[in-house]
């Protein structure tokens, strides 16, 4: 069944306005693929009414998964108040994730802000299967660079930018992307996996296109059902409108009409 209850093991603040929630569920740990999301009912009853879609951050072990989320509105703020031992109603895993069937020699992960959340799961799955995983991570400030030590711990080569220059190079993460593609310390095929603000992903898509490198992006859109019924979360693609919740959230970057 897609609809299940999962026990909260922990729900801890990891940065200002960012929380990591660990859920106990053998089924979710087994079934979830990088890029997929859970549709979470924050409270029973009518307030908040709709579920909140949150991507899977990591599979911790065979019966635990974690979510990394920002408190961006009322729903996620209420979610951040949940205590360990409480149960939450979860629909998922939902959506189409990253295509990891083909392993490149070099994986380039491009993360902007909260975009680091689903990319950690990608790095986890690619560990040991690629010659190199490079994480390009950008945020407004140093505190917004999420999970950097976790990425390093699983062997990622981490390049950082911040808009205020408080860590890494000052600027946008896309400023480093071209350089990362050209870095031939380790040769071979490249694939790009990106998640972040729309402008960042559009820029990443353009550069990946110029260098003719396969690139996938994980999109975000306001959604209601999460199941492909309501047609709220559409995105314009070269094949017409597609649903972020169903055909996405991960798309090939050259498919999207940016």
């Amino acid at each position: 069944m897609l609809n299940k209850t999962a026990e909260i093991i922990s729900n801890l603040v990891v940065a200002s306005g960012v929380y990591k929630m660990t859920l106990s569920s053998r089924e979710l740990a087994h079934d979830s693929q990088p890029g997929q999301f859970l549709h979470i009912r924050v409270n029973p009853g009518n307030d908040p009414l709709l579920r909140r879609p949150i991507s899977v951050h990591a599979v911790e072990d065979e019966d635990k998964i974690s979510l990394l989320y920002g408190t961006i509105g009322r729903g996620t703020r209420l979610l951040s108040k949940k205590k360990s031992g409480e149960e939450i109603d979860v629909l998922g895993p939902l959506g189409h994730g990253f295509d990891l069937s083909e392993k490149p020699d070099r994986a380039v992960l491009v993360a902007g802000g909260m975009g680091a959340a689903p990319l950690f799961f990608v790095a986890q799955r690619l560990k040991g299967l690629v010659k190199e995983s490079k994480l390009l991570i950008g945020a407004k400030t140093k505190e917004g660079l999420l999970s950097v030590s976790d990425f390093k711990e699983i062997g990622c080569d981490v390049w950082q930018t911040t808009e205020d220059g408080s860590a890494g190079r000052r600027g946008y993460i896309t400023d480093l992307f071209e350089q990362a593609l050209l870095d031939q310390t380790i040769g071979g095929s490249i694939r790009v996996y990106a998640c972040g603000p729309k402008e960042m992903m559009a820029r990443t898509a353009t550069i990946a296109g110029i260098y003719n490198v396969p690139c996938e992006v994980s999109l975000e859109e306001k959604m209601a059902c999460g199941l492909g019924a309501c047609l709220s979360c559409v995105v314009d693609t070269i094949d017409g409108l597609k649903r972020v919740c169903k055909e996405g959230p991960v798309f090939r970057s050259d498919e999207i009409k940016w």
Binding site: L50, G75, K222, L231, S232, C233, V234
Partner: peptide
């Protein structure tokens, strides 16, 4: 093709679409 996104938003005990 329908309307531009965002196509929904939540309101108190309800939603707009």
């Amino acid at each position: 093709t329908g309307n531009p996104v965002p196509r929904i938003c939540e309101t108190s005990s309800g939603m707009l679409n």
